[in-house]
Amino acid sequence: PPQTPIRAAMTSIQLLRGDLTSSGDQPSANLLTYFKHCTVDPTQDVQKRLETLGQVFSQTFGQAVGPHCVVYGRQRFALGVRLYYRVMEEMLKSEEKRLSVQNFNKLLNDSTFHTSLLACALEVVMATYGESSFKNGGYNHGGGDSAETNVCFPWILNVFNLAAFDFYKVIESFIKADPTLSKDVVKHLETCENLIMERLAWRTGSPLFELLTQEHESGGAEQVETPAN
C-alpha cells in the first residue's frame, strides 16, 4: 500500500539501521586482513582519521541544525562509519577479483579515498533521514533562535574540505558495492553525480584541472581540429 512520506522515511531508516546492525563499528576480520596485506598497514591512520572527522562532522552538524543536535550528528556518523567499512570491504573484494591482487597499499593509504568513501556513506545516511534531499531542500531538526543552514549536498564536501571531483570518483563503485541501497538513495547519489559533472567539478581549484593539464602535457589529449575555413 502507498506510504505517507513520513512512513516511507521511517521504513527507509529502519531498513538502513537493520542492514547495518550486523556491520560492526570496527573493521571486520576480513577488512583487517586487507589492511595487513598492505606494504604499510593503514589501520591506525584509518582509525585516527575517523576520530578526527567524527568530531568535525558532529560539531558542524550541530552548528548547521542546532546545538542540541550534536547528538544526532554523532548518531549519523556512527551509522556512516558502519556503512563505510562495509562498502570498503565489498569494493576490495571486487577489486581483488578483478585485478587478482591482495595488496591495495596505494589505495588504502590514500587519505582522499577514505574521506571520499566516508563522505559518500554519510550522504547516504543523511539522504535516508531526509536531511539531504534535493526535493524539499532537506529538513532540519533544530528550532529556536540559532541560525540553521541546510545540510543538503554539497554540504558534506565543505565539512570535510573534500573536492567534488574526488567525491565523484567513489559514487559508482559505492552503488555497485551495496545492492541494498534503495531506489531513492541511488537516485539521490545520481543527482549528486550530475551536479558535480555539470558544475561543482569545474569550480576554481578543482583537481580536475590538474588532471586535464597532465593529460595534455603527456600528449594524451587528441589534437583539436582546426576550424574549417
Binding site: M91, R98, K106, L107, F113, E172, S173, I175, V186, E190
Partner: peptide, 21 residues
Amino acid sequence: SHDYHYGLEDHEGISELFDCD
C-alpha cells in the same frame, strides 16, 4: 531495483580512479 547508468567498463574500477594502477 534502480536504473542507475554505470559508466565504468569491466576493466575499470576504483583503483584506476585513484591512480593506483
